[in-house]
């Protein structure tokens, strides 16, 4: 009896530590972002100020609203494009037996493990050759290297588990493969599409190396690079208030998405690794 109470207390202590550890940095960024002037240099553990000055400042100065728009555009395009390419490809990989299927799956998985830096030089040459330097299309193209293998992989494992009877019935009814995909499987695939789409969106939204390298024009930058390069009036003076405000602005939508779709995201993350 005594022992189980102790155990309960121990568990709850751990739960509190884990939650505080996970949430504190973001909480601290939020309370910092509401401080203005010299209040920012006063360490406080609880919210003290509620000034919107940093938010107004960051939204009015420079290109930040434009950067947000760029990030949204790139991330959406990446999601749509990789899902479109992956749906048909994963049908072929999951439901059709053909020579070289194992090798192809293995190659796709290897690509997802590529270090981005290994393709950076080659992609840079290609981007310049195609005239896409400082163009968001370069990012949409480059992001395929990490969203596409992942999307194909997860959708393939998902499609493999769909009942064969459905497909057989459709074939008996004379359905062609593309009809099987879009008429029979698609309605069942929404959960998987939402999950992979979300994960691809977050990956594209957060990407830094390509965005830093292929775009050098302030107006064309995406938010991670914009935040990384946010600087003050002088070189020494780091504008912590606006940086925290910008950080909160770009993170809040992600946190909301994660809270709404947490089950789907966990399922997708683990399907990408464990289930395979």
């Amino acid at each position: 009896m005594n022992k189980s109470i102790l155990k309960q207390i121990g568990l709850w202590v751990l739960i509190v530590i884990i939650s505080v550890y996970a949430l504190f940095p973001f909480y601290y960024a939020i309370i910092t972002s509401f401080k203005s002037g010299s209040a920012i240099f006063q360490v406080t553990y609880w919210p003290t100020d509620f000034s919107l000055a940093n938010y107004v400042g960051v939204m009015q100065s420079g290109h930040f609203p434009r950067n947000i728009f760029n990030s949204i555009l790139v991330s959406f395009a990446v999601v749509v494009l990789s899902l479109l390419l992956a749906i048909t490809a994963s049908y072929a990989l999951a439901r059709v037996r053909f020579k070289g299927r194992g090798a192809l799956l293995f190659t796709i998985l290897s690509v997802s493990m590529f270090p981005q830096i290994a393709v950076l030089a080659g992609l840079f040459e290609m981007v310049r050759y195609l005239g896409l330097y400082n163009n968001l299309l370069s990012l949409i193209l480059a992001y395929m290297i990490f969203t596409l293998p992942f999307t194909v992989w997860v959708l393939t494992t998902f499609m493999r588990d769909l009942p064969i009877e459905l497909e057989e019935a459709a074939i008996v009814d004379g359905a062609k493969p593309h009809q099987i995909i879009f008429k029979v499987f698609m309605p069942l695939m929404w959960p998987a599409l939402v999950t992979t789409g979300l994960l691809a969106f977050i990956a594209a939204w957060n990407e830094f190396l390509f965005a830093l390298t292929f775009v050098s024009n302030d107006a064309q930058r995406t938010v991670p690079v914009a935040i990384a390069l946010l600087s003050g009036a002088t070189e020494q003076e780091i504008p912590w208030g606006p940086i925290m405000a910008a950080s909160v602005i770009v993170t809040v939508p992600l946190v909301i998405l994660v809270l709404i779709f947490q089950r789907r995201i966990v399922a997708g993350l683990t399907a990408g690794a464990v289930k395979g």
Binding site: S19, L23, Y28, P224, I227, I243, M244, V258, L259
Partner: peptide, 26 residues
């Protein structure tokens, strides 16, 4: 339990650059 699971997803979802800045400040 659902709350804690959602809470630990927050660091995962925050862009690396943003977490670098947040910690840089802390």
């Amino acid at each position: 339990r659902g709350f804690v699971r959602a809470a630990i997803l927050v660091p995962w979802a925050i862009p690396t650059i943003v977490s670098a800045k947040m910690w840089d400040w802390m």
